[in-house]
Design a protein around this nucleic acid. Structure first.
Length: 271
DNA sequence: CGCCAGGCCTGCACGC
DNA sequence: TGCGTGCAGGCCTGGC
């Protein structure tokens, strides 16, 4: 599932193929994504020149001359660069072809993703306007995490997955970061000390950065239309390992559900 | 066959 | 009454 590192890796993989190119054609095969792709989008995009590709939280922003294409990969989405001859597969919903022949193809079996068009400043878009700080930016650190969690009774795992506190921390990395910070996912967010907030903010940054670095090494495969390179399937410390031994102390990793999501932690290493 | 996974928006219920 | 907060539902398909 695409988390922030996957979206960032995707952005970096797409950028050299799209930035500065003119859009030649757009094909929409299935507009029924999380929100329907608006009618007429193909006509709107055709002929526009693409500027830079950026990212906000897990939203990929493709800046164009007259607006911004906002793409979210949901749970099962992926974007690849292919050619016009690459066979269409079952869940290939959206193609954007630029001059020179490169095609950005959106594949999304579960259709939780989205392709939206915004003519305003994208930061003002309804979906982006109320987002918290980027985890890898200076706007997010131990102090901001400490302040944002004061008075919050919710578990810290829930809090770091709250986009109002920090964006882009999905279930896998929330579990992994808490393990690295040696903090139990069940601790009330408002009870974390400054020191523990600093450790957690640092762990979130390190975990996401490491995943992006790992993704970078598979960029070559990404561009090669193979696409299925899942660097994020790398071995985890706790995620999806309930019942298995902790890689540090050997204790059994525990599993529980928080906010209808699976949490995993080491009862010895994490307090 | 039924259930589950997951991101994340939306709407509802609650307490101050 | 209004706000912040917490919680559950819904969207989907593939895989077990």
């Amino acid at each position: 599932m695409p988390e922030l590192p996957e979206v960032e890796t995707t952005r970096r993989g797409l950028a050299p193929h799209l930035e500065g190119r003119r859009i030649e054609s757009v094909v929409i095969r299935n507009r029924a994504l999380r929100w329907p792709i608006r009618r007429g989008l193909a006509e709107i995009l055709s002929g526009q020149c693409i500027g830079v590709l950026s990212r906000r939280a897990k939203y990929l922003l493709i800046h164009c001359e007259r607006g911004t294409l906002i793409v979210h990969l949901g749970m099962s989405g992926s974007l690849r660069i292919v050619t016009g001859e690459t066979p269409i597969q079952k869940h290939d919903h959206f193609d954007l072809q630029v001059e020179g022949g490169a095609v950005m193809r959106l594949t999304d079996p579960r259709r939780f993703g989205a392709v939206l068009w915004s003519t305003d400043e994208p930061a003002q878009h309804k979906l982006l306007a109320n987002l918290g700080p980027e985890p890898l930016s200076d706007q997010f650190d131990g102090e901001t995490l400490y302040r944002a969690t004061r008075g919050r009774k919710a578990a810290i795992k829930i809090a770091i997955m709250d986009a109002g506190i920090v964006v882009g921390v999905g279930n896998i990395y929330a579990n992994e970061a808490l393990f690295h910070a040696r903090i139990s996912p069940r601790v009330a967010a408002g009870k974390l000390s400054r020191e523990r907030c600093a450790r957690l903010a640092r762990a979130i940054k390190d975990t996401l950065s490491a995943a992006i670095s790992a993704g970078g090494s598979s960029l070559r495969d990404f561009v090669r239309a193979d696409g299925s390179q899942g660097h994020f399937q790398h071995q985890t410390w706790v995620y999806n390992r309930a019942g298995e031994p902790c890689r540090i102390c050997g204790a059994r990793i525990r599993g529980l559900r928080q906010g209808q999501r699976a949490s995993c932690y080491c009862p010895t290493c994490q307090r």
